[in-house]
Amino acid sequence: MRRAGIGGLLIAVPLALALLGPLFVPEQQNRRAPFLPQGLLGTDFVGRDAWYQVLAGGQTVVLVALIATLASYLAGVPYGVLAATTRSRLVDELLMRPLDVLLAVPSLLVLILVAAIAGQGLPVLVGVVTLVNFPDVARLSRAAALEISGRPALEAMRMQGESWWQTSIVYTGRSMLRTLAADVGVRLTAALYLVASASFLGVGVPPDAADWAVMVDRNRGGLFLQPLTVVVPALLIVALSVGLNLVFDRALRKVRT
């Protein structure tokens, strides 16, 4: 109980800043010299007010992680179910073996390589994080669907001549929901981790973007002058990640008991 309270609080602060923050950023901002002790947190590496950058910079991290997680489910679940329900062993192998290769490459390497080809931009970042998360989702859905398709209930439905829609989509889909729900937290935190790390390494976002991870990277030069310009965005990312883990862990326990 207490842990979920802490987790909720840890999420609430960065999430509120990320979603509502952009509303409070003034249109007109005058630039000063870098790393001056002016404003709430001082100025950043190009002289912008770091507090406004913090307000504006959470949106991309949170949205990209959310969209990428959603996309990896939209792609991975049908893929896995298709592999599980197909009658041909060959199709199953053809669908699943390439994923082993993808899983054999370190995810950050995939991310750096693909981003190097596809160039910059948030859609690219979403695409790469989806690509990295997708094999796990596909494997999980295949395993879940395989288990369900062997159930007596489904055999009975088939013998009664229920339609493919009823057996494969309605029944299997509904039965898989629990397994998938238990996995959402892991995927979301993994996506958040990848998005933040990628942005920090300068992959996928422009170097002066208002983004917490980019802020941490760019303002490191002023760590001795204005440590808050680095520490505040870093702490917000840490809080978001820790909070997500605590909340999803608690939700999972509740489902199990």
Binding site: A196, S197, F200, V216, A234, I237, V238, S241, N245, L246
Partner: peptide, 14 residues
């Protein structure tokens, strides 16, 4: 549970 999947760079900078 809490530390799982904290981005390394954020932890490092803090």
């Amino acid at each position: 549970v809490a530390l799982h999947s904290i981005p390394e760079f954020a932890l490092a900078v803090v």
